[in-house]
Design a binder for these strands. Structure first.
Lengths: 124, 124
DNA sequence: GTTACCAGTATAATCAAGTATACCAACTAT
DNA sequence: ATAGTTGGTATACTTGATTATACTGGTAAC
């Protein structure tokens, strides 16, 4: 039993080339940052060229103005997006993605891929 | 309203080559399936070769026995993992991943990649 | 014989995430 | 004039996810 533990530790820390600990940490970090129902769909929408509040809202089925408003604020604070007010008449507000925001591209792509495959799977 | 809806539908379905609607749907499906803090870390742990309950538990920082127990049950019901009881003495319980479970591999990999880059970014 | 491991369950509490609904001050098109 | 758009805010509420803590029955090692 004691032997077992020593062996397990050794195999995790020393033998495992992929370093499990670090990977779990990284995974949990990512889950923390993009957690919740709306973060990723909003990022996706803005990256797809939607700029205006109502435009983004309409592009995401099920989201409420409150949630969108809250998330946009937080994402602006975290430098994921940029909010620009154009002083035309009427005033126009535009949301655009930052470089940082684009770093989620691959994750979103993989998730879209999975979602599509999943639909196919349950259809047949 | 009726006009509007028809127009919106037309612009989405016809004009947009990447078919936004479908992609948002796929993305939201995926988020639904892997939602929560623990699903992905558990899948990752089991795919990394952890089989025993306490072994999985120890490999995921912060998880409680209750959450692990609940998630494992649900994941077994959804055919993401297999639970095997080996009637040795003492009885041994093993959790193993199914093929379906492996379909999350790319998502997890991308998320680990992002998490590592993120650590690097905030370190400097 | 007491300490520790295994595979969990039970109970209760907390707390953030999300919903529902209404409202606002501009502005615009009919 | 009035119905509708835009970019939101306010208030109240629900609920589901997660945590904390304790406990169980069996095995085994010291």
């Amino acid at each position: 039993m004691q032997e077992d533990k020593r062996h397990e530790l050794a195999s995790t820390v020393l033998d495992n080339p992929r370093n499990q600990r670090q990977e779990v940490q990284a995974l949990q970090d990512t889950i923390y940052v993009i957690g919740g129902k709306w973060r990723l769909p909003i990022i996706n929408s803005i990256c797809n060229g939607n700029k205006r509040f109502r435009e983004i809202e309409r592009s995401i089925p099920g989201i409420t103005t409150r949630m969108l408003s809250r998330e946009l604020k937080e994402m602006e604070a975290n430098q994921l997006i940029q909010r620009t007010v154009i002083p035309s008449t009427p005033v126009v507000v535009e949301y655009t993605s930052t470089d940082y925001c684009h770093s989620f591209g691959d994750i979103i792509l993989e998730m879209i891929k999975w979602g599509k495959q999943h639909r196919e799977r349950i259809k047949h």
